[in-house]
């Protein structure tokens, strides 16, 4: 059952709230087993904003599913506040890459969804939902259905719904990937603002360097196949940050550094895929 997040377990020996240890995920495919995530370990401190960045297909979503408890067939452990989890955990709130609002519920009822599960009385949960709707800047749209909203607004509804469950850790998988650049930047500002206001521990999965540098305290760069941790970069930029920081010199240096790391991986990924396609064609021709 879902209960309001409260500190029941005492903090782990070190101060990390999320500890991901030696995660290995293998998938069986028709062309044989592939290692999607290879021995990934990371720690997230309370209130920290950590991003995981990597080229397409490097295993980011797979890692997201493991940390969220949706994928149980893996090696290694995930610890939340000192507790090893097996399956979805109430301390972790997930925002998905795909559009995930409930089209049959109004914005308010979407956001109140996790509160409904706790058995909170209706009047109270509507009030709570309103609070989170305002937080993501959707006031005035409380009684609309997702079908009447834009893609960016729907993604904000998903975010508000997850925030309403007051997770200790907010886990997001490329939440803005499907949005246009301007919306993405503005929404990034919003998320950052909320994250700072709530001191929300956040793990963001992304393939967007600008986004990662703008928001994160630290960035984990992943390699392509097998998905390993290549480097962890500390982002030492002053807060509060907005999308304006994107123009600064320090920002540019971080972006260049991470791009250098990523380019190697991304081009390896592309070569890999090309080889794959070529073999495929040869196989088909003979």
């Amino acid at each position: 059952m879902l209960t309001p997040a409260n500190p029941t377990t005492q903090a782990a020996a070190d101060d990390a709230i999320l500890v991901v240890d030696n995660i290995v995920v293998r998938f069986e495919t028709p062309e044989g087993p592939i290692v999607a995530v290879d021995d990934v370990s990371l720690k997230v401190k309370p209130g920290e904003f950590l991003s995981v960045i990597g080229p397409s297909g490097c295993g980011k979503s797979t890692l997201f599913n493991v940390v969220g408890g949706l994928l149980s067939d893996h090696q290694g452990t995930v610890n939340v506040a000192g507790e090893t989890i097996s399956g979805p955990h109430q301390s972790i709130g997930m925002v998905f890459q795909e559009e995930s609002t409930f089209p049959w519920r109004t914005v308010t009822d979407n956001v109140a969804f996790p509160l409904e599960l706790t058995g909170m009385p209706k009047a109270q949960r509507i009030e709570r939902a309103r609070h989170f709707i305002a937080l993501v800047g959707l006031d005035g749209f409380e009684n609309r259905y997702p079908g009447e909203l834009s893609g960016g607004m729907r993604q904000r509804v998903s975010l508000a719904r997850t925030l309403a469950s007051e997770p200790k850790i907010l886990l997001m998988d490329e939440p803005f990937a499907a949005l246009d650049e301007q919306t993405r930047l503005l929404l990034g500002d919003k998320v950052l603002q909320i994250q700072q206001a709530l001191k929300q521990t956040t793990l963001l999965i992304t393939h967007n360097i600008t986004e990662a540098v703008q928001m994160s305290d630290r960035i984990v760069v992943m390699t392509y196949r097998p998905g390993k941790v290549k480097r962890i970069v500390d982002i030492d930029l002053p807060r509060p940050r907005t999308s304006e920081i994107v123009g600064s010199e320090a920002f540019g240096r971080y972006v260049a550094q991470i791009w250098a790391d990523l380019r190697e991986e991304a081009s390896r990924g592309m070569r890999d895929e090309e080889k794959h396609t070529l073999e495929h064609h040869k196989g088909g021709a003979s």
Binding site: L2, P88, S100, F102, L117
Partner: peptide, 22 residues
């Protein structure tokens, strides 16, 4: 849609909640 089912799982729904609510 798979992602809606996953939203339900991420909120720890019981099988009957998963059915009636999603």
């Amino acid at each position: 849609r798979k992602v809606l089912v996953n939203v339900g799982r991420s909120f720890n729904l019981t099988p009957s909640q998963q059915f009636w609510k999603i």
